[in-house]
Design a protein around this nucleic acid. Structure first.
Lengths: 212, 212
DNA sequence: ACCTGTGAAGCATTTCACAGCT
DNA sequence: AGCTGTGAAATGCTTCACAGGT
């Protein structure tokens, strides 16, 4: 009867934009704006209106023709669709300078991410407080993960340790990993893995300088 | 989108990959591999051979048919084309936890990036040593930039300060900026700007969790 | 009059497939 | 035989343009 609809998923490329729209919308909401048009939002985030409408349409049309989008509703819907309507528990593995910097990042809690624990392998660091209560030993990782549901693991270990740690959290059922260690890690299916790589960013910039 | 495009020939999207190939090739070179095929490299970095050949072809064909690529030559050419065959001077603005973590990152120097100075606005931080000699006052920024050529400015200030600082370094002639502050900054033409945004990364991961 | 939602056009990037060199 | 380099096809993403609702 009904032809099978090729469920056109939301393009990977749209997600970072939707996150940006949300951040701006929350700001506009705080400023008391009740309604926002795609043009208004596009100007505010530096893109074009068609892009905004297309991106929002992946989550279903919740605008009003002739008017625009209800700011509150749009924020609420975006938060829900992006999975930000519930608390997300995060752990940081690697309590060095970078891990500590991320632990202290305030924008964290603002979007519903709660830092549940930090881990480190160095006995001199274990037990100290880096912003999320006492740093736990990496030996306690599996015990902790079987006692607490954790949604995202942030990896800020040295490069050599990263892949092993990722395998361990994945095996313990953590469904998403953000890797800051400067290696290309891999994760099995069912685990979302994103990489943030300083050296790649610097090299990309370096290319645009190449003619100096 | 953001950085200027000096050469239409090479897609923006290929640059991070080329940086990754380079890192892996340097590793293979150290292991004594004289020659590498696109298939071998593809397996090592987790992509397919056609992608590798296409990407390398943007820089001109320096492989040998029937054989593969000479590892040393390929490393040398990639380094040159990516602008890594000369020293790049970098400053970090914002000597907080994140700026300090980046300053201490060892992989930095390995690719020819030299940290020339760090700046901060907080008088309690100015003068202390965070890994690149004494932290300078942000008031000295313009003086420093007119006395020293700087290729890349890394911004690790609070969100509120980022845009102003970017305007200042851009006005002083710094051609590339890497922004870690959680705001979407803008830069005029002629300034390459890249953004690294923790909160966007977390939200993107959160989306893939949305059905929990 | 204004603004959304969306097919379709226009671009960009990735993958295929094979000619041509070693 | 093996592998690169590359047009061409396929796929994915962005922008256009307008029908349709307020």
């Amino acid at each position: 009867m009904n032809p099978p609809k090729p469920s056109d998923a939301i393009p990977e490329a749209a997600l970072p934009r939707l996150a940006r729209y949300l951040r701006k919308l929350e700001q506009l909401e705080e400023e008391g704006l009740e309604t926002v048009s795609s043009r208004r939002l596009a100007d505010a985030v530096g893109t074009n209106p068609a892009q905004i409408r297309k991106d929002l349409s992946y989550f279903g049309g919740f605008g009003t023709r002739g008017v625009g989008y209800d700011t509150h509703l749009l924020v609420k819907e975006l938060r829900r669709r992006l999975g930000l309507d519930r608390e997300r528990r995060v752990i940081i593995i690697g309590a060095g300078k970078l891990g500590t910097a991320l632990a202290l990042y305030r924008g964290f809690a603002k979007q519903g991410f709660r830092l549940a624990a930090m881990f480190d392998a160095d006995p001199r660091v274990v037990g100290s407080d880096r912003g999320a209560g006492p740093v736990l030993s990496i030996d306690e990782l599996e015990d902790f993960l079987s006692a607490h549901e954790v949604h995202i693991a942030i990896i800020t270990t040295p490069a050599e340790a990263a892949q092993e740690v990722i395998d361990r959290v994945a095996a313990a059922g953590v469904p998403a990993v953000l890797n800051f260690a400067p290696v290309r890690a891999v994760a099995g299916p069912g685990v979302a893995l994103r990489q943030v790589d300083l050296s790649t960013e610097l090299i990309t910039l370096s290319f645009y300088l190449a003619g100096d």
